[in-house]
Design a protein around this nucleic acid. Structure first.
Length: 770
DNA sequence: CACCGGTC
């Protein structure tokens, strides 16, 4: 248990907990707590605080609990906690191998200590800056059990203690007052089912007004506090006795309905869809919802406008963001080119010679266009030579002294871009210099980026808010090169920025469809194209060797068996590929019998059964030889979300593990293993942006919610030499038919069209190559 | 049927 004091592991625990709500990760430690029915209340005196995170209140305590002889480890949340404090915790006993016997509390209710010993410990524990154990002793000696009454009611008497002057006395009374308010809020919130971590955030936001604000309009919480949504606020409101038909509730509910739509990628929603949705969510009559909508509109929280002929309601922030993107892009397109005229007749042969590449006509045409375009989109699937074109453009412009900046929405895409071009690329967030305090960016309209050309890769993953931030930070006199593949999975956040920019015709577009990587004989390529066009892929058994196979499997057990055979023996035998390094199983989902999570366990047992040297953390076992994936960016270790590595050694004595990423050794303390997961199988979503020699994709009807055309397309196009679909023909047919990215409601396309009409910009030429 | 994904 002592190890829990280490910051990395304790931090890891919090991350694990935070993730649970979103992903249902089996590694999340709180899982069993939330599912448990054996709730117990534990009361006791805190002996020692082993770990406390002031930010979210997470803490690990050793406590003398009533009814227990030995000290008890308690894990939970408390805003302020110190030795000597009395705690009441509700939760259950957990015995996990990593941390031993613990009491996991949903939350702790703390109160001021009552024993003299407790009071002294409490005062001396650092809760008040400037009061250490020595002053605590003096204060207790002077006032005894009444010390807190003195602090509260007779603060002037504090100065009777030698060494406490006016300044120190004030500090003590202030700190006490603050803690009192926090406690009051905690009690209020606990009684309404809100945990301590959120209570701390609420206090930080509203200060002493917290209780008043919450009583007047609990829905403000949903607006102001990260981590509190409409549902939590609504639950508080219901307990406070607010009517279901109250205007504050209905108004908040309108934004909630739009936020739900935003989670599905929409910037707005047709009024005809929004009203019934709100009626259902709020269980309130239509007339009242219409009134609430009018009020929200008149105060500017939402905006009504048409998309085409459809009347829609937008969240104000997203509506303005799309306007800003359009305004700035059109202004940029109309600006002057930041570099002098370049003789393309000389530049193109020069770059061919320098890189030793013979460029295709379409590629030359794309490069020529880029040398004179203020903004340009290059789009196309994998293997069409986007990288070659971008590289050539960058070489030519760099030679002319053009100042370049490169960025991408993900850490891994940025890293890949760096490697491919030899020019440093950053994530968009880092390029724009995220300011964690404000949540905004230091690079903006007032403090723009310093460059002549900005290149964005993987632009299909950029959402409306990020694009807005980027456009604000891009100077009008710079040029912009946008690279991406619109057929891949859409952005996480709302909008369809790349598709709208391409569709509007506001910017010249190079569409690359010619595949250089493989001959037209590739069934991978043929089938990827067929899927994109909504046609069934050719699943027939090929005559000779091929790069695309379909292995039928009618039920999950059968599918898992087929996959195991393929990975372990059939593919290695036939194609000479390594089962761990060369073959990647890509699943539509994490969950379920044919999901990535379960397949990881099966594949690991089949391919790399763990020996003596291993470590179990966060629900997974890690042993030498295991294939793993890093799941968040770590700029110190230089490993990025989605990177694949192999475990080289596990050292239980040092509490460390070494993994190899691209031949580079990276060390992980056991406490950091929550950033690593097994990667024998992963989701198609996670594989976006990567390629593998061989790919196996289970496609079953039980994957129903994920069976979408662009998902299947993305999965298949990850395979370079071999793709095997395992499962049901029926499921593949569902996926091919399902154009799930059923229209995202957005207005960017329209803003751009209107913008170019007004400015009289000539419709730019686009190059399409077949 | 209800899933999946990014940044800091």
């Amino acid at each position: 248990m002592e190890e829990a004091a280490e910051t990395p592991r304790a931090r890891g625990v919090i991350r694990g907990v935070a993730r649970e709500g979103r992903t249902g990760d089996p590694g999340a430690l709180m899982k069993s707590t939330s599912e448990s029915s054996t709730q117990e209340v534990l009361a006791g005196l805190v002996e020692r605080v082993t770990f406390h995170n002031a930010e979210n209140g997470f803490c690990v305590l050793r406590a003398k609990a009533r009814g227990h002889r030995d000290l008890v480890t308690v894990v939970g949340h408390a805003a302020v906690i110190s030795a000597g404090e009395w705690i009441t915790a509700s939760g259950e006993w957990i015995n996990d191998r990593a941390h031993g016997q613990q009491f996991r509390a949903r939350f702790l209710k703390t109160s001021a200590p009552s024993s003299i010993d407790g009071i002294e410990k409490y005062l001396g524990s650092g809760m008040i800056r400037g009061i250490g154990p020595a002053y605590a002793k003096k204060m207790v000696k002077a006032f005894g059990e009444r010390v807190f009454d003195v602090i509260e009611a007779e603060p002037e008497r504090l100065r009777e203690v030698t060494g406490i002057g006016a300044v120190r006395a004030k500090r003590i009374t202030d700190a006490w007052a603050e803690q009192k308010v926090v406690r009051e809020i905690m009690i209020f919130l606990h009684s309404h089912g809100v945990g301590t971590a959120r209570a701390v955030r609420i206090y930080k936001t509203y200060g002493a007004d917290a209780v008043r604000v919450m009583t007047e309009n609990p829905y403000r919480l949903a607006r102001d506090i990260r981590g509190i949504g409409f549902k939590t606020a609504d639950a508080i409101a219901m307990k406070l006795g607010i009517e279901k038909t109250a205007m504050i509730r209905l108004r908040a509910g309108i934004s909630y309905a739009l936020t739900e739509a935003m989670d599905e990628g929409h910037c707005g929603l047709p009024t005809d869809q929004l009203i019934p949705l709100a009626e259902k969510l709020l269980e309130a009559p239509k007339e009242l919802i219409l009134t609430a909508l009018d009020l929200e509109r008149s105060e500017g929280a939402v905006i009504a406008d048409k998309v085409g002929d459809t009347a829609c309601i937008f969240l104000a922030g997203l509506y303005r963001a799309e306007q800003v993107i359009s305004d700035r892009l059109i202004r940029l397109v109309n600006g002057k080119l930041p570099w002098p005229w370049i003789d393309e007749e000389k530049a193109v042969p020069w770059v061919e010679k320098r890189s030793g590449l013979q460029l295709a006509d379409s590629q030359r045409a794309a490069i020529r266009l880029a040398l004179t375009a203020k903004a340009l989109v290059i789009t196309g699937g994998p293997g069409v030579g986007k990288t070659t074109i971008v590289n050539s453009i960058l070489k030519i412009l760099a030679a002319k002294g053009v100042r370049l900046l490169l960025c991408a929405p993900t850490g891994r895409a940025a890293k890949r871009m760096t490697e491919a071009t030899g020019v440093e690329a950053k994530t968009i967030h880092r390029l724009l210099e995220v300011d964690p305090k404000s949540g905004g960016f230091k690079r903006n309209a007032e403090n723009p980026l310093d460059c002549d050309l900005l290149v964005v890769d993987e632009a299909s993953m950029v959402d409306v808010m990020l694009m807005q931030a980027m456009m604000k930070a891009t100077p009008d006199n710079a040029a912009l090169l946008i690279v991406g593949d619109i057929d891949q999975l859409p952005s996480v956040g709302p909008g369809q920025v790349l598709a709208d920019i391409i569709g509007s015709g506001a910017v010249p577009v190079v569409r690359l469809t010619e595949v250089f990587r493989q001959a037209a004989a590739s069934r991978i390529i043929i089938n990827a194209h067929r899927i994109n066009q909504g046609l069934m892929p050719d699943l027939s058994a090929p005559a000779g060797d091929s790069d695309f196979y379909f292995v039928p499997a009618e039920d999950p057990e059968n599918a898992v068996q087929r996959i195991l055979e393929l990975v372990k023996t059939r593919i290695p035998k036939r194609f000479g590929l390594n089962p761990i390094r060369d073959i990647q199983v890509l699943c539509p989902m994490n969950r379920g019998g044919v999901g990535a999570r379960s397949l990881n366990i099966e594949l690991r047992a089949a391919l790399n059964p763990a020996g003596e040297r291993k470590v179990e953390r966060f629900g997974w076992t890690f042993a030498p030889g295991d294939k793993v994936m890093q799941i968040e960016n770590d700029y110190d270790k230089e490993v990025y979300n989605g990177d694949i590595g192999y475990i080289v050694d596990v050292d239980p004595e040092a509490g460390e593990l070494v993994a190899s990423f691209d031949g580079r050794s990276v060390t992980y303390a056991f406490g950091e293993l929550d950033t690593l997961v097994p990667a024998y199988a992963t989701t198609i979503h996670k594989s976006q942006g990567s390629e593998y020699p061989a790919v196996i994709i289970p496609v079953m009807t039980q994957h129903y919610p994920m069976l979408q055309r662009n998902l299947l397309y993305t999965g298949i196009t990850r395979g370079k030499r071999l793709v095997v679909l395992v499962g049901q023909k029926k499921a593949i047919a569902i996926a091919v038919r399902n154009v799930s990215s059923r229209r995202r409601w957005s207005k960017l396309d329209e803003w751009l069209r209107v913008g170019i009409d007004q400015r009289g910009v000539r419709k730019p030429i686009s190059i399409a190559t077949i």
